[in-house]
Structure formats: C-alpha cells, structure tokens
Design a protein around this nucleic acid. Sequence first.
DNA 1: TAGTGGTCTAGACCACTTC
DNA 2: AAGTGGTCTAGACCACTAA
Lengths: 234, 234
Amino acid sequence: MGNVLYVDIVNDIKNQIQSGQLRPGDVILPEYELSEKYGVSRTTLRKSLALLVSEGYIYTIPGKGNYVCRPARKKYQMDFDEVDSLKVELEDIHMVDVNVITPRKSLMDKLHISYQDKVIRVRKVFLAAGRKVEYAVIYLPYEKGSPIVEDVINFANFFNVMEKQNLHFQINKTLQIQVVQADASLLDYLSVELGDPVFLVSQEIFSGEKERPLSYNEFYIVTDALRLYAETFL
Amino acid sequence: MGNVLYVDIVNDIKNQIQSGQLRPGDVILPEYELSEKYGVSRTTLRKSLALLVSEGYIYTIPGKGNYVCRPARKKYQMDFDEVDSLKVELEDIHMVDVNVITPRKSLMDKLHISYQDKVIRVRKVFLAAGRKVEYAVIYLPYEKGSPIVEDVINFANFFNVMEKQNLHFQINKTLQIQVVQADASLLDYLSVELGDPVFLVSQEIFSGEKERPLSYNEFYIVTDALRLYAETFL
DNA sequence: TAGTGGTCTAGACCACTTC
DNA sequence: AAGTGGTCTAGACCACTAA
C-alpha cells in the first residue's frame, strides 16, 4: 500500500463497503478493535473514520458506534453567479434605476418585513451582442443609516459591498431556478417577446446570524444565455 | 466560551477573519505559536485548523504556513434526481423501449467509445396528471456479458442497478442544465408542441476509477414540472 | 539550516448508551 | 457497570520550503 497509514485504512474500509462485506446499516468494529486490527493508535484510526464520515461512507452515533451509510447520492455541487455563469460575453451592465419602494405582500414575506418598511430596489440590465440577456432586480430592506444600504447605492454591486463589509464568510444564499413566461413588464428590460420562456433565478441572501434576509434578488435570463453545470461531490 | 477547546479556537479565528484583523492572503501564526497562544497541544490546535480548512476559511501550504482564503462563495449545493426533483406527482413511468443502437458521433464522444461499439438505449416517459412531463433517454455502452447491462435491461431502473452492484460510493455524476426548443422527435414522448421550451438535463455517470462514463443520460422535462433549489454550503 | 506543516503514538479522562 | 465514541496531551520523526 501507500505509506500513509490512515489513507490505507480509509481505502481498506471503502473496499469492504464497495465489495459488500460491509452493508449499509451495518455497525463497524469499535474503534478500539479497529486500531488493534490495523496495528495503529486509536488517534490514527479515528482520523481514518473522520475521513470516511466526511466523504459520506459512514456516520457515527456517540456511545453506540460507527455505521455504514445508506447512500442517496443526489447531491450536486454547482457554481452560480449572476454575471459569470452566463454563457455569453457581457458587453455592458446598464443600471436602470435605484428606488425606494413600498413592498408588495409577496416581497414583504420574502424579506420578513412589515408594510411600514421601505425597500431599496436596484435594477440592472446585462447586455451581450447587442441583446439584453439578463435583467437583475435587487431588493434590500431599507434601514436608515445602515452602511450596507448606503454602500449598495454607491457601489451598485453587491459583491463589492460584501467585500467592503467583510461579509464573505457569514453569508448564506439560496437559489430557486425555474422557467417562466415573459410578461409585459419584462419586455423593456430583456430581449424577448411576450410569452417567451425565460430563466428566473430567485436568490435570497442571509447574513448567517440574522433570520431576516439581507437581500432578495431576481435574475431574469434569456434561455440561451444560461447553462448550468453541476457535479456530485464527496 | 463553550467547553470544547478546538471549537472555541475555530470561532476565535473566524471572528478575526470576519472582523478584518486577518485579511485574505494573510499568513496565520505557525501552528507551534498558535498552540502556545491558546494554551493547547499542537494536536488540538491542528484539529481547529483542519476544521477551518474544510469550511473554506483557510488553506494550507505544507512547509510554508496557513493562509486566509480569498473567498469566492459561488458554490451551491443542489439535489437532483430525475424522479424526485419533479414538482408534480408522478402517476406512472412508461417504458418506451430498450434497444441496441449504433451510436452517432456525438454519442461516441460522450461515452468515449468507437464506431464499432454498440450502445444500449433505454427510453422512458414519466406521466403526471395525464401529461407526459418527462422523457428520459439512457445510453449505456454495450459490453457483452457485462452484468450492468444485463441488469439495466432486467431492472429498467438505474438506481436499482447501482444498488445491486454496490456502486453507490464510487459513482460520480455531472449535470448540464439548459433550456432547448422541442423538435419533432420529442413530440411523441412529451406533452409539448413544436418549438416549446423544454428543460434538457444531460447527465454523465462515471465509475470513480474508470475514465469512460458508465452511462450518458438525457432528461427532457416540461418547463413547469421542474424547479431546482440550491443553497450555499460550508 | 531553520522553520513549517504532515503523520503517528500511547495513554488519559469524559459523556453517552445499554444492560 | 461495561462499552462506545469525543476530547486532549506531550512528544516524536518526517518531508518540504526558504534563506
């Protein structure tokens, strides 16, 4: 084998699982016995088990034992970025407007705010090859004096804001990807015709600690400008 | 703080990064000095660093040091399954046919096979509320006597095959998600009209070790039957 | 050559589960 | 009470990077 003990052990146990000697749901030998069997310290053996856990092969129940996973393997890893994920070469980003608006019911729900709160709306159009390929609408709850809101207005780019605020790591985002039909309100901002299919990517941005979203964004993208790639991982 | 040392250390370093005391690209104090600073053993300190690495906060260059990451945060986690990801309640899955075909050039490239190889094609239609909502085409390189091919014909369901073969863990898959226009060949298998937009999810399935894909699949899905959800992670 | 991270040990004490 | 995993230590030796 190789000369790294914990890697050899990981591979050996993987092989046992793949060959069917260990079946999903089975208990593995306790750590003490495994460390004897492989002739390594318990510390080293535990490093192997930790790797197997992180790769989704086994799971641990403290006080009971380590069990072989019943795998689902439906999880994919995907990159998305409202600019870089486009298939087309962007020529320009056109700022449509920045307004303070009174939110509708659906937006109030998304942002977890009440009818008396105001919302900043930033709208942008992305141009490529003379076409309007993406229409981005960014909604931010307005908090007077909030540096985030002021920065968004100044920077007009959410990533710069995040950078300035050192928010990178505590940010969580969700995406919803669907195809909708273009309605009349889209026609000014996207090179499509009424009823044409359009990608709608809805994004919520959370600041790790708070429950309220920092921002809710909608990206309307012409169908031929977006192709998503995903890959299983672990 | 809590009473788990390595967790406290992780949080302390996270805070230093988030507060800007540690900036992307900065070198962290060497492990030896950190273990002194926090008053723990190097082993414990290293456990903290390993966690920070796995969560994407820092990265390590052996022989040099640990550095604060320059975060991209475009990575999302998404579930996809040709059956369970549908928004609609499936009523039936109809097997269209199972054939041995001679691959076209594009398929030869996808499966990494030559013009003399044969391919098994399995075609299925998924029905919901009286509509054909998904049309699945599964391509498998034909290897005589290969248990996989025999099983696919018998089971007519790829996941059962994987289960029987204990392949779960060494399987890697890629997805490509796009929207295409329905052409004439689709009309028999999907409740759409010529030119209608259709999700096309292309999937490659690799068996960890081999370079050749085990299978190449195409799922054509009516646009209103699929909505994808994704979430940042780490 | 000195400094850094990578691997490994042998043993300790704790909290939890099960009987 | 016995068995299991969770945490932690103090020290060793190695491979790699840099001056």
